[in-house]
Write a protein that binds this DNA or RNA. Structure first.
Lengths: 266, 266
DNA sequence: GTCATAAGAG
DNA sequence: CTCTTATGAC
């Protein structure tokens, strides 16, 4: 079967439901992983997702901030995950669909100061990565796994608009790039986006709201990711396609993140 | 010449500019008097009004609350008015267009408790009426005058959805009805709406946002008025038409007030 | 710049 | 329910 997975930090699912429907009606996704839904479970627009063919929904919400949700065309099972977020915020969830485990993360942004001692938010972010990496090392590697979400790190030189200027900015500091590398190594994760858009092409999934014209300045970052573990990759046949739907960022009152999509046959 | 005057409490002119343009493009107004613009003068969307044929604008704004503005197809002169509002809020303005003076009021709502001693907002509202009435008595009655705006009183039995239930509610208490009567008497004002919609027809210009379906419950009030003094009425030839554009209240994210319109030839 | 929250007003 | 303001987050 063909499985098409989207990841999108929507920055308020209630405010963006019309755009989500418009987007999902114009592509061929089976599963959409949302971050920053910014609502509680009972406030989630379940019916609107059901109306466009995504009746199976798993929500991890909280009041006002953060929050993740997965909507699917097909039934799935929910899995419990370890407390990667030490503050207990709604940033993590896991499901199993067609034998593929999917982890949906909204990893903390980490504040402004890239110093673990001076900035607890930065420490919190790195500890989140450390906990995930530790778990990946002990996890049964035979189980197919896809990890996606707003991981809030742009790991590569060509994942940021200016490698030189971004090295001091949280999301692209050496410490974070190391943590991201340890995470990738721990899970032996495969990034299909860099096959679809080979280096040295710059690719971004997020552009600040503060830019008057994001296309013109194009000061973006690649903060959103969809990654496959070896067991999942081995299960696929044919091409694995990866797309960044940056045209959605051009809509009226958009999220600051673009949706990304990976498609494969298992 | 034919003169068509609209009065509309828009509840934020910046948020409602598209609706204002859509409305003005579908009727034949010459002058629109706005209340609750909720912005300062420099924040007013002057260009948007100019673009739809209303380049002459007079604004009395303040930060965040209240605020009145007049936009016109034709040039006019601004007049100073007495301080009817003892708190100095942006609730009053006057212009003269084609020899007709127009007063645009956003009279205080008056709070919840209909008791001048216990509720200063209620006292403020009645004092506003008293000051206007006193001024009308001394004003030169030969000068044509139109008074319009959100006057925040529904004076008649058929200006409210339930006369019995509203008598205890601010906007339709006996004290306010008396103050409104004194105001009408002082200026010998003519209300063209009750000729257009004769008693006992109930007519409203405002419906609470709290009603799920304002058409269904129809618990409205007639708080907005356009009134003519005898000198202006004597100057007119032919019919004076009066319309309540309640269809605008059905739009998406509308103001809680409907625009009202009076048209005459002078 | 664009979200959420909360208060205060209507 | 729907506006404003203000603050905080990103």
């Amino acid at each position: 079967m063909r499985l098409s997975v989207v990841s999108w930090n929507v920055n308020s699912v209630r405010l963006r439901m019309e755009q989500i429907a418009k987007f999902l009606n114009s592509i061929d996704a089976d599963v959409i992983c949302l971050q920053e839904i910014k609502c509680q479970e009972h406030e989630f627009p379940r019916q609107a997702f059901a109306d466009i063919g995504f009746p199976y929904i798993h929500i991890a919400g909280q009041k006002g901030w953060h929050g993740v949700a997965i909507a699917s065309r097909y039934p799935f099972e929910a899995n419990e995950l370890l407390p990667f977020c030490r503050r207990g915020e709604a940033r993590v969830q896991a499901i199993v669909v067609s034998g593929v485990e999917i982890w949906n993360f909204y990893i903390p942004a980490g504040g402004d100061v890239p110093d673990r001692a001076a900035n607890d938010k930065f420490d919190h972010k790195l500890e989140f990565y450390e906990r995930v990496s530790a778990h990946l090392k002990t996890r049964n590697k035979d189980h197919p796994l896809l990890i996606c979400g707003d991981l809030n790190i742009a790991p590569g030189e060509f994942d940021v608009w200016s490698h030189r200027q971004m090295l001091k900015i949280v999301s692209h500091t050496p410490q974070e790039i190391d943590a991201f590398g340890e995470f990738i190594t721990s899970g032996e994760l495969y990034d299909p986006f860099r096959d679809a858009y080979p280096v040295p092409e710059k690719i971004f999934t997020w552009w600040s709201y503060r830019a008057a014209d994001f296309r013109k300045s194009n000061r973006g970052l690649r903060l959103d990711h969809i990654l496959l573990n070896p067991a999942l990759k081995a299960r696929t046949t044919g091409d694995i396609t990866a797309k960044i739907h940056d045209w959605v960022r051009e809509w009226e009152r958009p999220s600051d993140h673009a949706p990304i999509q990976v498609e494969f046959t298992i």
